[in-house]
Each structure stands twice: as structure tokens, then as C-alpha cells.
Amino acid sequence: MNAFLLSAHVLAAVIAVGPVTVAASMFPAAVRHAVATPEDGRNLATVRMLHRICRVYAVVGVAVPVFGFATAKNMHVLGDTWLIVSMALTAVAAVVLGALVLPGQGAVVARLEGGGAGPLSAPPARLALYAGLFNLLWAAVTVLMIVRPGSTTGV
């Protein structure tokens, strides 16, 4: 059972979190292109698609902590410090995605679709910062999952 749960957890992380990290990182540059060339509808379509990828895979990404918690419970490591820190970082990453990245992207998409003039409510640089923070949090979680400080397999 451990092998199944761990496999499901890792697959969910790769399949769900990977696309969000890439799409969220690509979004600011796509916005810059869409703003620079508003007459080219393909750029707006790209911005919409990247936002949709982030939204859909964020929902799918719920499977990552679900399978992770089940795996940890089955392996009797719920009280291990590395896991508690990983769960806390995962929660912070979820907040960054749900409270900063997705709403910021949504506001930009709405503004670009409306065609209004003026500054974006969420500038591309700020969205890049949020995406970078999200990615950094997931990188830290990944390292903790592999190294597992204090375990016999840790460094």
C-alpha cells in the first residue's frame, strides 16, 4: 500500500504542480506581449490559456497533499519535523496560488478582454514575483521530500 500511495503522491505532484509552475512562470511574459500588441488576438488567447492551465491544475493539485497525507499516515511519519515543515510550506504555496497568483491572473485577463486603457491591476512583474515564490516553495517541499532531514535516508 505504501508503494501505491507514494506513487500516486509523486505522480500527482508531477502532473498537477508541474504545469502550474510552468504556466504561472510564462504568464507575465505573455501578458507583456498581449499589452504590447493588442491587435494580435493570439497573444490574448495565450494569456487566457495559461490562466486556464493554472486554474484547472490548481484544482487537480489538491490530490498532492491528499495522497501525501495518506502516505505519511500509512508510513507513520506524521510527527516528523521534515513532514510538518513540508505540509506548512505546501499550505503557504496553496495560499500564494489561491490568493495571489490566480486572482492576479484573473484580473489581468479581465482587463485585457475588456480592452480598457490604463495600468494593469496586477503588473506582470508582481505576477512574476508571486509565481517565483510559488515555485520556490514547491522546490523547498521537493527537497524536503527527498532529503528528509533526520531520517536514515537523509543527508
Rank of each mutant, 00 (worst) to 15 (best):
F4C: 06
L5D: 11
L5R: 07
L6V: 11
H9T: 04
H9F: 06
V10C: 05
L11Y: 08
V14N: 06
I15D: 02
V17T: 12
P19S: 11
V20A: 01
T21M: 12
A24K: 01
A24R: 01
S25M: 10
F27G: 04
F27E: 02
A30W: 02
A34Q: 06
A36G: 13
T37R: 07
P38K: 10
E39I: 05
E39A: 14
E39Y: 06
D40W: 05
N43Q: 11
L44M: 09
L50R: 03
R52M: 12
I53E: 02
I53P: 00
C54A: 15
V59L: 14
G61H: 04
V62N: 10
V64D: 03
P65G: 08
F67P: 03
G68D: 09
F69P: 02
T71S: 14
T71D: 12
A72F: 11
K73Q: 13
H76W: 09
V77Q: 05
G79I: 07
D80F: 06
D80T: 11
W82H: 01
W82E: 03
L83W: 11
L83D: 00
I84E: 15
I84F: 08
S86I: 00
T90Q: 05
A93W: 01
V95N: 09
L102H: 05
L112K: 01
E113Q: 12
E113C: 09
E113R: 13
A117H: 13
P119M: 10
L120W: 04
L120V: 10
S121H: 06
S121G: 15
A122G: 07
A128F: 08
L129N: 08
L129H: 06
Y130H: 09
Y130E: 11
A131R: 00
L133Q: 02
F134V: 02
L136P: 00
W138R: 00
W138F: 14
A139T: 15
V141M: 02
T142F: 08
T142Q: 01
L144W: 03
L144T: 01
M145S: 03
V147T: 03
V147K: 03
S151T: 14
V155L: 14
